Each structure stands twice: as structure tokens, then as C-alpha cells.
Simulated scan of single mutants.
Amino acid sequence: MGLALGLCLVSGASAVLMVSAPEPPAGSGDPVETSASGPVGDGVPDSSDDRRTQQSAESTTSPAPGEGSGEKPPVLLRSVEEEVDSADGELSVVEGESEVMGEGPLTTFAVEVEEGLPGETEDFAAAVEKILGDPRSWRADDERSVQRVDDEDADVRVLLAAPDTVDRLCAPLNTNGYVSCANGNRAIINQNRWVSGVPHFEGDLRTYRIYLINHEVGHTLGRGHVDCPGEGELAPVMQQQTLSLQGCERNGWVHPENDSEN
């Protein structure tokens, strides 16, 4: 099984599962709307160019609060690092389990990180756990309960990887080194989007990170893309906000009307 949902703090970060990223099949297609059984992503702004070389000049990310002061930034703003093109190609499951969060049928998730990425694996795992365990995420309204595990048979896996590895894992979907995707039960997160966001979020990296996890995990749960419902309204989490807000306001939550427990 593949992806992972998450919310809490992680006590350890040693690798449990190692697997080489597969080579892409011959011929990669353009992004298309698919079911959760095949790769699905946010498309590519310009399918003729590899976007990773343009993002560093466009990035609007500001230093995380507390950075440089000795104070640890909030969980959702940790490990703001430089962009990369590639890493080691080996994927490691981050050790650690959370309590069961929410009510309803249990969905387990694991967190995987590619070896050799900048930043701390514990930071990514803690952020995923915090997002997916929030009542505003996919566990809302007692639809399901969620629990982070470090079992290779987790129902969902959330994976952080360098652009080159994302391109391989998402093939035949064309991610062009820029966007993230979901493939089967894996939510595959592009490291450069995680650390830099996108320009039209105007430096709001916290909201973009929440959106990125909830959107790709939504695909693993069978949700497809939707459009902005109207000018000035909150963007639905399954809107392709990485590409455009379409006149909506940026939003990362599935159920933004719910109260947070945190």
C-alpha cells in the first residue's frame, strides 16, 4: 500500500522501509483528470518547459517565524530549506505512531521521506500529522478516524520527494519537476513546493502546506478536481490552487467551518 495522513509530533525519524524510486515508463503523457487508481495531479503551468529552474526567482517565501532567533518555528513552518532538483532516490518510512484521532472507521497513514533532502524528516512527519489530525481535515464530521503508523501496509502514504523523484513516481502524469500528484494510495509531495509554495499564495506558506497535503490525500481518498464556486469565496480544497485561485480566496482545509482542537 502507499500514502500517509498525519498530525502529531514525531518521536523518532529512523528509516524503516527502503525502496528505490521506479523509472518512468516510456512516453509520459500530459496531465489529465483520472480516478484515484492512477496518477492525478494539478497539471503543469507550461508543459513545454521544466518549471523547477523558474521557481527560485518567483518564490515569495519568507523566513519562518522564529528562524534565526533560537526559537523553534511552529510545526507547519519548520524546515524552510533551499530548493533541490534531486536527492538519493531512496524512500524511508519515518518511525512513529500517533493516537487515533477522530471518530468513525479508521484510516491509517504513514509518512515517507526521500533520503538526502534538506531539512528534518521529523518536521515533515509532524506537519503531516498535525494537518490530517485536525477536525478541519478529512477526518471531520466523524466520517473517519485517522492514525499515523509506520507500517508499510498503511492505508495512505504521504511522501516528500525531490522533483526528479516526483516525476518518476507520478509517471505517466507529466509533473515537469513542479507539481505534486497522487498515485494509488500515495500522496507524492514535491519538495520544492513544500519549501517555497507558489507565488499567488503571497508568502502564505502555512496555508499552502495545509492545502498541499489535504489536496493530494483527497485524491487518494477518491476525490477529483473542482472549480472555484464564485469570486471571493474560499477555494475548495480539491480546486487546483497550485495553478490558480480562479478568483477564490486561498484555503487549505476540507471543512474550514469546523473548529480546530489546537
Rank of each mutant, 00 (worst) to 15 (best):
M1K: 04
G6W: 10
L7P: 01
L9G: 01
S11P: 01
G12E: 07
A13W: 00
S14K: 01
V16S: 04
L17M: 03
M18W: 07
V19G: 09
S20Y: 00
A21G: 05
A21P: 04
P22A: 13
P24N: 06
P25M: 06
P31M: 08
S35K: 05
A36K: 06
G38S: 13
G38M: 09
V40L: 11
D42Y: 09
D42R: 05
V44M: 08
V44G: 03
P45V: 05
S48F: 14
D49K: 13
D50V: 02
R51V: 05
E58Y: 12
E58I: 03
E58F: 14
T61R: 09
S62R: 07
G66H: 00
K72W: 07
R78D: 00
S79M: 11
V80I: 15
E81G: 13
E81T: 15
E83K: 08
V84A: 11
A87Y: 02
D88F: 06
V93R: 01
M101L: 15
G104Q: 05
P105V: 03
T107M: 09
T107E: 08
T108V: 09
A110E: 05
A110L: 02
V111N: 03
V111P: 02
E115L: 10
E115T: 11
E120K: 13
D123A: 12
D123M: 10
A125L: 11
A125N: 05
K130P: 00
D134C: 15
P135F: 15
D142T: 02
E143K: 06
R148N: 02
V149K: 03
E152Y: 09
D153A: 15
V158P: 01
L160T: 06
L160C: 12
A162T: 04
V166G: 06
D167F: 06
R168K: 12
C170D: 05
A171E: 05
L173P: 01
N176L: 09
V179P: 00
G184R: 02
N185H: 10
R186C: 05
A187K: 02
I188E: 03
I189E: 09
I189S: 02
N190H: 02
R193P: 00
W194E: 00
P199L: 12
F201Q: 03
G203N: 01
D204F: 06
R209N: 08
I210C: 05
L212H: 07
N214L: 10
N214Y: 00
V217R: 01
G218K: 00
G222A: 12
G224I: 11
D227T: 09
C228R: 05
G232F: 15
V237D: 00
M238N: 12
Q241T: 05
T242E: 12
L243M: 03
N251E: 15
S260A: 15
E261D: 15
